[in-house]
Nucleic acid binder design. Structure first.
Length: 329
DNA sequence: GCGACACCGCATGTCC
DNA sequence: GGACATGCGA
DNA sequence: GTCGC
């Protein structure tokens, strides 16, 4: 039994509970546990044997017990029981960008749709419109989401994503309307695989930049073409987002969109304790709303009394504590 | 044992 | 047409 | 479900 296998079971439990409308925090707990286990450097079986599971932050008594069950029997009774409650196709539908638990359950209950295939047929036939909260536009979005799922299954290795991103950045840099420019997301954190490419810029006149972006030769499909955000699919099948942010918020946006999500949550919690508020626009005093930082990323961390943390370390593995104590490697 | 668990913007659809 | 609600995702 | 108070 590998860490990945154990993680997968918990991830599925989370998905099913979500479709069943369970308490979102409970769902989140399973999902987070799955992620933690997957990223563990140590073998989960060894940890279970040594009874050290509960030492891992995010894993409590309940999940530790379930891990032991999986290690001992190779399966989780709760997982099997939950799987029996919903058709397997619903989990697949949940993977479609734009399809959440609510929509999945809605189309299943009202139209009996229980597979991506059936969903695609229904959307093409215009049978989805008329359902509460769904119109013609939603149908198009769903069809697009299905295409996206098929073309981007699997993440892109950094070795391929990085050159592609560099090329795009280099091309945009040539434009006089582009002031500051940076990548963000898992690419900037140098993860081994990348889900999508995020690029941020400041620009007094974004329109020509956006026009150039969506008409690059490598662009296969344009998902959105606005003045503050555009999204395209490039030939590698990867989604690339370009966002324009105000100059005074560039550092904040860079920090926010670089993540990781867990790192950001920990930062925000910390900020709240200090009477501050962090968002993608800056660091603010909670009471007066006074802006303390935002233009540069370093200031964001400085406002929280810590040194700038390199993107590669922003995974909520203790780097925030280390930074606060001044013992960043 | 009990409450909190980040914050928010965007897209879409609905209601008045 | 504009205020409001909901779902989604980051 | 997990954590901190």
């Amino acid at each position: 039994m590998t860490n990945a296998q154990v993680a997968r079971i918990f991830a599925e439990v989370a998905d099913i509970l979500e479709i069943l409308g369970e308490n979102p925090y409970r769902v989140q707990a399973y999902r987070r546990a799955a992620q933690i286990i997957e990223n563990l450097t140590e073998d989960i079986v060894d940890l279970a044997r040594r009874d050290e599971l509960e030492k891992i932050p995010g894993i409590g008594a309940s999940i530790a017990q379930k891990v032991k069950e999986i290690v001992a029997t190779g399966r989780l009774k709760q997982h099997e029981e939950l799987k029996a409650k919903i058709p397997p196709g619903l989990l697949e539908m949940l993977q479609i960008p734009g399809m959440g638990p609510k929509k999945v359950l809605l189309v299943y209950k009202r139209l009996g749709i229980d597979s991506v295939q059936k969903l695609e047929e229904a959307a093409k036939a215009g049978r989805l419109r008329g359902l509460p909260g769904m119109g013609a536009k939603t149908e198009q979005n769903i069809l697009r989401g299905i295409q996206l799922l098929r073309s981007t299954r699997g993440r892109l290795p950094l070795g391929i994503a990085l050159p592609a991103a560099n090329k795009i950045v280099a091309e945009l840099k040539e434009l006089p309307q582009v002031e500051r420019i940076t990548t963000a997301g898992s690419l900037r954190r140098m993860k081994e695989t990348i889900g999508d490419i995020d690029i941020l810029i400041t620009s007094p006149d974004p329109k020509p930049v956006m026009d150039r972006f969506v008409s690059m030769p490598m662009v296969k499909e344009v998902l959105a073409h606005g003045t503050t955000k555009s999204s395209v699919i490039i030939d590698a099948g990867t989604q690339v987002d370009l966002r324009v942010v105000p100059p005074e918020s560039f550092g904040a946006a860079q920090q926010y969109f670089t993540g990781s999500k867990d790192h950001n949550i920990r930062l925000r919690e910390l900020a709240i304790k200090k009477g501050l508020k962090i968002n993608e626009y800056g660091v603010f005093k909670a009471d007066t709303g006074e802006r303390l930082a935002g233009e540069h990323e370093e200031e964001m961390y400085a406002a929280l009394d810590m040194p700038w943390i390199p993107p590669e370390m922003r995974e909520n593995w203790g780097e925030i504590e280390a930074a606060l104590e001044g013992r960043l490697p």
